[in-house]
């Protein structure tokens, strides 16, 4: 066993030493996840048949692949990438590997704003991501204010506990809203756990612009993010205005989490599991970490969604439930290591 662990460590070190290997590995995983996801479901479509089913309207599986599965897969990949990078950003801002938009209530803040928009302005569906972003941003601000004691550094325990409390309040508010305005609200249980069921191209169109903007902006800010990992005094000494930088990174994280929540509900743990797993093979440098987290997040959500819709087909499990089964133990593992 010890020998096996030692070998694994050597292989992981090799991946860290050769950044292109880890990027290629994750890209290959995403390609495999894509084909598995598009090919599996109520109708099985072989990998070689997928392009034909997609492009030829007379193909018997064209409707299933082109109109139902492809938008779901595209949206799922975008949700995964957005949540994973949102997790990286949040973990950098608070310098804590436990940070995740789902665990800290950022997703719940976005979700509450999204549900409220759907209920009170049902004809303004296009505005849902914007209001979700405002909800997520407000939550991040609230969390930072609650977790930063005067003049002291950020407390990990205070942050996580504040997040749990904020999340409970927002979920309760969502429950009340969906109960009182049941005819206009999204299905509460599916929204709360997170689901990709029924997502179409119109959902992807809502999700793609903020996700692309968020991912590009995060990659452009890779250097400042690296500096942010240092303590505030050192970062300031290197010429960084720490508070505005932190606010900007938090806003990007909120934007990405809000985009994902707007279409898929409160999908949790992607922002926790993926950054922590990817750091093992890429190291903490953001120029590498962000791209790899996006690839890993997209793959994880696609594979989890494939399991969710094929395990007891045609009944579908919410993808969030599968991700929670992976994320819960990861969270406990990190918590076990971090807390005294």
């Amino acid at each position: 066993m010890k020998r096996w662990v030692a070998r694994l460590r050597i292989q992981l070190q090799r991946l860290r030493d050769h950044p292109r290997w880890s990027a290629s590995l994750l890209l290959a995983l995403l390609v495999v996840s894509f084909f598995v996801s598009v090919g599996s479901g109520a109708v099985e479509v072989g990998p070689l048949d997928i392009p034909r089913a997609l492009l030829q309207e007379e193909h018997p599986d064209h409707t299933v692949v082109a109109d139902v599965r492809m938008p779901r897969v595209a949206a799922g990949a975008a949700v995964g990438a957005a949540l994973a990078v949102a997790g990286v950003l949040l973990q950098t801002v608070v310098r804590n590997p436990l940070a995740d938009p789902g665990i800290l209530g950022v997703s719940a803040g976005a979700g509450l704003a999204a549900v409220a928009t759907l209920i009170f302005a049902p004809d303004r569906a296009a505005w849902v991501p914007f209001f979700a972003f405002l909800g997520a941003l407000t939550t991040v601000g609230l969390l930072l204010a609650l977790s930063w004691s005067r003049g002291a550094t950020l407390s990990a325990l205070r942050l996580v506990l504040s997040g749990v409390a904020v999340q409970a309040i927002f979920i309760a508010a969502m429950a009340l809203l969906t109960f009182a305005f049941a005819e206009r609200a999204p299905a509460f249980a599916a929204f709360l756990v997170g689901s990709l069921n029924g997502l179409g191209w119109q959902d992807f169109a809502l999700l793609a612009p903020p996700t692309l903007i968020g991912l590009a902006a995060a990659q452009a800010a890779a250097r400042p993010l690296d500096v942010m990992l240092l303590d505030d005094a050192t970062a300031g000494g290197l010429g960084m205005s720490v508070k505005p930088a932190r606010l900007a990174a938090s806003s990007l994280s909120a934007l990405l989490a809000a985009a994902a929540v707007s279409v898929a509900g409160l999908v949790g743990f992607v922002g926790l599991v993926v950054p922590n797993a990817v750091r093992v093979i890429s190291g903490p440098e953001h120029s590498r970490l962000l791209v790899r987290a996006a690839l890993g997040g997209a793959s994880l959500v696609l594979l989890a969604d494939t399991v969710a819709r094929t395990l007891i087909a045609p009944l579908e499990l919410p993808v969030g439930a599968i991700l929670a089964l992976i994320g819960g133990p990861t969270f406990l593992g990190i918590l076990w290591k971090k807390l005294p």
Binding site: T63, R69, A187
Partner: peptide, 18 residues
């Protein structure tokens, strides 16, 4: 064709049924 749960039907099976 089996559409599954009436509260959350399978859109894939629905598309397959044409």
């Amino acid at each position: 064709l089996d559409l599954g749960n009436p509260h959350s039907p399978s859109f894939e099976a629905l598309a397959q049924a044409r």
